[in-house]
Design a protein around this nucleic acid. Structure first.
Lengths: 230, 230
DNA sequence: AAAAAATATTAAGAAAGTTTTAAGAATTAA
DNA sequence: TTAATTCTTAAAACTTTCTTAATATTTTTT
């Protein structure tokens, strides 16, 4: 199985480093963040499979961070809290963490919990590591390799083209408005950029369609947007 | 089997010598160091198969030493700690060890733990039986030896270069964005460090590619990141 | 059928991303 | 300590991609 990545979020460097060593020994990839804000950035940029989060942190505490993370992704979260902190309260709040460990903790126990959560997540969870390749009538999109092929023949797309194809393909059949496409791909508000998207669609068709004038894959839904044929 | 070597690190001479005698009786080679600094030097000079390390030491304490040792090699570490020392502190310091023994200890018990760890290490541990070697069209990455070779010829990489090669190679074909590479290798958020990664990529190519301008191994995927050719 | 609205096409200049060098900082070895 | 290696930063050259704007085409509405 592919290496899994755990994000460790704690404001104390010693704790971050300690946890890192333990987890690395178990063969998981570790990345670190020192507060909730930083954690949010990291999960946007890197694929993370589990988060270990201290409850008490500057910037964005564990509970608030959990909340925001859940909006983005549904990956397991293990919370760390000092024993003297109001554990009952934390538990009672049903913050949405999948497990809790109180500090000071036995390292082996934390490792065990991490492995248990990862096992659950991988085996039956929201996680599909299975190559992540979308296939639609001969159009193939490999999410990890960021590679597209038509009938086995690989197609060279530019970054924006690729992102559009990935977006449409991973929700084949669903119609995306030009605004939606722009916002999801560029990650900024769309303002007078409709034509820009259209030009990219044109280029994509040029590359993946047999006949760009009669597209089989990227279809327009007049007045509403574009979709990838399911 | 060849004779195995154990490094004993403790600031008290009596303890070092006592352990030495017990272990020599069991037929293992013993070398000694009186603090973490000295231990690091020894490891570089001699091939060591296990380390016995006191938690409390001058110069470089147990955890700091463990951390540094782990970066270099993944050999088993047994930690010694006094019972009367502040438990919480010890808990933190013990991090990263494979086993713990509290002082005063029963010599036979320590010997037993040493043998057990060595057995694990040698038989199926990190030693060399578990040959994790990645081979990609002549590029060879030995994960445990942290060694890279091209067509049998060994290549000398710096630590960061090695980590990047390992990351890309162990997921050959998968595209890693510069941010992802930075975060996974440096273990900290990437901001404005894109060019740093690029320079390292350059250096890597200089070393492992026949023609750095036309790389066969480390390929760029324009606008998305880098990948190792599968 | 004509007008209006939405989408398609084209090409050239602008922008963004990558590669490469080199020099100075920082780290590590001796 | 000094020396050597490794890492980071900055700048420039270079490559690829994106955007813009003007125009054409298609579809819908009137």
């Amino acid at each position: 199985m592919e290496k899994l990545t755990v994000l460790v979020v704690d404001d104390e460097k010693e704790i971050r480093d300690a946890i890192e060593i333990y987890l690395q020994n178990e063969g998981v990839e570790v990345i670190k963040a020192k507060d909730g804000m930083e954690a949010l950035e990291r999960i946007k940029q890197t694929e993370v499979h589990l988060i270990i989060l201290d409850v008490m942190m500057p910037k964005l505490d564990g509970i608030a961070a959990t909340y925001k993370i859940r909006v983005e992704k549904n990956i397991p979260i293990i919370m760390l809290s000092a024993k003297n902190e109001d554990t009952d309260k934390i538990l009672g709040l049903q913050v949405g963490a999948d497990d809790y460990v109180t500090k000071p903790f036995n390292p082996m126990e934390l490792v065990a919990r991490v492995k248990s959560q990862l096992r659950r997540y991988v085996s039956f969870g929201t996680y599909e590591d299975k190559q992540k390749v979308i296939d639609l009538h001969g159009l193939t999109v490999d999410i990890h390799a960021k590679a597209v092929a038509v009938n086995g023949e690989s197609i060279k797309l530019t970054p924006i083209e690729y992102k559009i194809v990935e977006l449409l393909s991973s929700h084949a059949g669903r119609v995306f408005s030009i605004h939606e496409i722009y916002e999801k791909v560029w990650k900024e508000p769309c303002y007078n950029a409709e034509n820009t998207v259209a030009v990219h669609i044109r280029k994509i068709r040029e590359k993946i369609e047999v006949d760009a004038k009669n597209p089989r894959y990227v279809k327009v839904v007049w007045g509403l947007g574009y979709k990838m044929e399911k």
